[in-house]
Simulated scan of single mutants.
Amino acid sequence: MLSALIRRNLVQLGNLVLLAWLVSVAVFLLLDLIPGDPVDSLVPPGSTEEVRAAAREAYGLNDPLLDRYLSWMGGILRGDFGESFASRTPVLEVIAERVPVSLELAVVSLLVALAVSIPVGVWSAYRQGGLFDRAATAVTSATLAVPSFVLGILLVYLFGVHLEVLPILGWVPFAEDPAQHILYLILPVVTLAAGECVLFTRLLRGDMVATLQQDHVLSARARGLPTWRILVRHSLRQSSFSLVTVSGVVMGRLIGGTVIVELIFSLPGMGSLVVNSILSRDFLVVQAIVLLSAVFYLLVNTGVDLAYPWLDPRVRKVGKA
């Protein structure tokens, strides 16, 4: 008989499959909800009705809705997202050229936000009410009041225009020049990570303050254990439960939220691609980006849910009960 914990994991995976299917249906219907005719992107302006009819037939736009969905979904399961209306190249190839930029930007921003917020949040909780805690609260409050796009513009002006110490527009692949690649990455990463640092720091500080008052932590202090061990081993892991949960949500949000940052810094990522595709009415590319982003978001959050028993032993105990 399967244990309760294994059954819980299977339910999570089942929910993932169901949600992914519902997302695919919603994304497919976007093509029919968008104003205008998709044929306008397939044929030159002023084309005759015969040319337009031939284009509709070639792309299956005359087929019933269910047949078009099954054909589209069958192609996706085979790795075929169709052909871009604008470039006449496979959609997956178009996206594959842009994914590394957005994915790197999101992952590095998340790691930077965690690397900054974890020590700040832990020490603020340990020195609750002290000078460091008050300073961290003031900085996070000020950062929270500045939208990311405003912060990006300020960073561009300060470091790119006024000080001229960092590049502000464009992108250099890591394989071409690692040093320049890092320089071009700094400002976009800081722009995205700043807001997440505020969220992570406040969340972790609140959880750590509560954890540090628990009996096992007070007992560790009474036994004279080193401060770093009390904070890291006895407090941080238990307090990171909410942090990991929010990190999964933030990762999905960063993937979808790089649009403005990519436009500000002229980065060749998914954000700029989806904007250009919308403007050129390249619907298949938009569909694929939305679908892949949503599935990635679901995968990350399902992974976080499956990691709960490892992070918090209480979940394992509930599963065994």
Rank of each mutant, 00 (worst) to 15 (best):
F174V: 11
Q180H: 15
D215C: 05
A220Q: 05
R237D: 00
P173Y: 15
V261C: 07
V250D: 00
P178Q: 07
A288P: 03
F200I: 03
E262I: 11
G269P: 00
I168L: 14
G206E: 08
H181P: 02
T201R: 08
G170W: 12
E164G: 09
F174H: 09
Q180G: 15
V261M: 06
G271T: 09
L203Y: 03
I230G: 01
R223F: 12
E262T: 05
S247T: 01
Q213L: 14
G256M: 07
L218K: 15
Y184P: 03
T245P: 03
P173V: 14
E196F: 09
D215S: 13
L204C: 01
I260D: 02
G271A: 13
T258S: 13
L218S: 08
V244K: 00
L231Y: 12
A194I: 04
I264W: 01
L284Q: 13
L254R: 02
F200T: 01
V250N: 01
G269A: 14
S280D: 13
G206R: 07
Q180A: 15
I255K: 03
S277L: 07
I186M: 14
L243I: 07
R221T: 10
S272Q: 13
P178D: 10
E164K: 14
Q238A: 15
G256Q: 06
S272M: 13
V246G: 02
G248A: 06
S266V: 09
M270K: 05
T245R: 02
F174D: 05
V275C: 03
L243E: 00
L204S: 02
V259H: 04
G252M: 11
V275R: 03
L192D: 04
A179C: 10
T227Y: 09
Q287V: 05
D207G: 00
F200E: 03
P167E: 12
R202N: 09
